[in-house]
Amino acid sequence: VAMELWGYRAMGGSCLRPFSCELGPLSRPDGSAAFLQGDTSVLAALYGPAEAKGNRELPERAALEVLLRPKTGLPGVGERSREQLLRRTCEAVVLGRLHPRCAVSVVLQVVADGGSLLSCCLNAACMGLLDAGLPLASLFCGVTCALHPDGSLILDPTTRQEQEARAVLTFAIDSAEKKVLMASTKGACSMEEMQQCIAAAQSAADTIFQFYRDSIRRRYSKS
């Protein structure tokens, strides 16, 4: 672990950990995806568009629900707030008006947390949406940036790097115009630093979207 840490530092911290993704690992859901970023791993499962339960039904669009399941213990306030962030992000890209009165539920299971968990959740959710074939206006990806006390910027930080960091910022970037769909920050940073993080996240997004595209290409290589 220490070796890796130094490796990232030496490269100016601008390095994403190895990514892997498996589409449709689960047989029951309408769509599923396992997304791994280094040691962080999230499994996403999607159901829908399905029948909405009673009061959840919305007359002119699909009701989107995101559930985030921690690995140990029961979901708490932290999970709830992340669910909200994830739901808002998904709602921004899902064309819910095409399925009024329906329910779409996204269930995310944390499999391993090795840092940048929220961005991994975002990526898993987007791949899940793709696998389920829900109509989307664009894609989104999650990028976490950590600001080290020495001022350097680390992309896709590990748990250790997150702990050492002065501030940790996570952004959801959309694929169409690379706009920021969601921002969540922890710790203090200046406005310049924040803009730097957004710029870095936007350039990391290119790499991630290319990864999405390659994964999907591979999946459709046989049909």
């Binding site: 309408d30 769509g31 399905a50 064309l95 074939g133 989307l136 999946r219 459709y220 049909s223």
Partner: peptide, 27 residues
Amino acid sequence: VTKCGLLRHRQAAGGAYWVDSQQKRYV
């Protein structure tokens, strides 16, 4: 494009484009 998949084209009658995607849930 709103779904991922292979883009298909049919020449007949002015032409048609669609995306052939793998999906489980029926609409």
